[in-house]
């Protein structure tokens, strides 16, 4: 018996000419991601002093540098959690069809189009010492001196909240509309109250989606840079890790250290994502019945 042709055997393993369609994407990833990443990784192990791990040692032994990890986590973790947490009730209310849904969705998503700089500008005007917010507080007699909400931790916090919310909201909304609404109705006929229906049926089915949403908003917030400078306190309270990397790279011209910081940044993100996805793996992730 003769063996089938080589092309036929390859096709059975999923290798045929269609695979060529992957080439542009593969080249793109190689040139714009894999190569720079490997280059940076290599660079981080070639500092001028201290052997291959010198740059990392320099980062971790200096508390001013090391603490940027904690500073950034202190901003990005609460922001990501809050964005996911706030998105859930809003998206839950907006599941069905109602008049003006499109307008409301547009309004909620608009911050995406603003960009960080515009958001920062707005925050300075609104929350600054002479901003409307403080004027209202003082006018209402709630405070004597303006509350400081910009050029510190809170300025960056609000800025990240505003820019991150649309992503979280859109993702949660699409995950929620993927859950068959009949399930909640079935739960209702079985005697479950509104809260029980949400807690026992919708939330468990939504949780994996929330984990994914959290990861994405966390990564967005963790790499914060412009707003940390514009509405934060870039030398103190909001000296986030990306500022440390920028400082090393473009003020000290120590590329090895800058690369090492970037690699550390990536590793911290990976750890948080791994923990979140590890938790997600314990949840039900099958079909949720709806049309997602």
């Amino acid at each position: 018996m003769s063996r089938p042709a080589l092309t036929h055997r390859l096709a059975e393993r999923g290798i045929d000419r269609q695979i060529l369609l992957l080439v542009p994407a593969a080249v793109f990833v190689l040139v714009l991601f894999v190569y720079p990443f490997c280059y940076g990784l290599g660079l981080s192990f070639q500092p001028e002093r201290g052997g291959p791990l010198g740059a990392y040692r320099a980062f971790f032994t200096d508390p001013y540098e090391r603490n940027t990890i904690w500073t950034t986590l202190k901003l990005s973790l609460p922001v990501a959690l809050l964005n996911v947490g706030v998105s859930v009730p809003i998206a839950y209310r907006m599941r069905g069809r109602f008049r003006g849904k499109r307008l409301l969705t547009t309004l909620l998503v608009v911050p995406i189009t603003l960009g960080t700089v515009l958001t920062a500008q707005g925050l300075l005007n609104f929350l600054g010492p002479a901003g409307w917010f403080n004027r209202i507080l003082i006018g209402a007699g709630l405070t004597d001196a303006p509350v400081r909400l910009t050029n510190n931790y809170w300025g960056v916090f609000f800025s990240l909240l505003i820019t991150g919310f649309p992503f979280a909201f859109l993702l949660v909304l699409s995950y929620l509309s993927g859950i068959d609404p009949t399930l909640e109705r079935a739960a209702a006929t079985l005697g479950a109250s509104r809260t029980q229906r949400f807690r026992r049926i919708t939330l468990p089915l939504l949780a994996p989606g929330l984990a994914t949403t959290f990861c994405l908003t966390f990564v967005l917030a963790f790499s914060v840079f412009p707003s940390a400078v514009l509405v934060g306190d870039p030398a103190g309270e909001t000296r986030v890790i990306s500022i440390a990397a920028w400082h090393a790279g473009y003020e000290q011209y120590d590329y090895a250290k800058a690369s090492a910081i970037a690699i550390v940044m990536g590793l911290v993100e990976l750890v948080v994502i791994a923990i979140t996805l590890g938790w997600r793996a314990t949840l039900f992730t099958g079909s949720t019945g709806g049309k997602g």
């Binding site: 009949t182 399930l183 109705r185 079935a186 739960a187 039900f284 099958g286 949720t288 019945g289």
Partner: peptide, 9 residues
């Protein structure tokens, strides 16, 4: 229900 609406989880 027509679609059974069993809780998938």
């Amino acid at each position: 229900f027509q679609s059974y609406a069993l809780f998938p989880h």
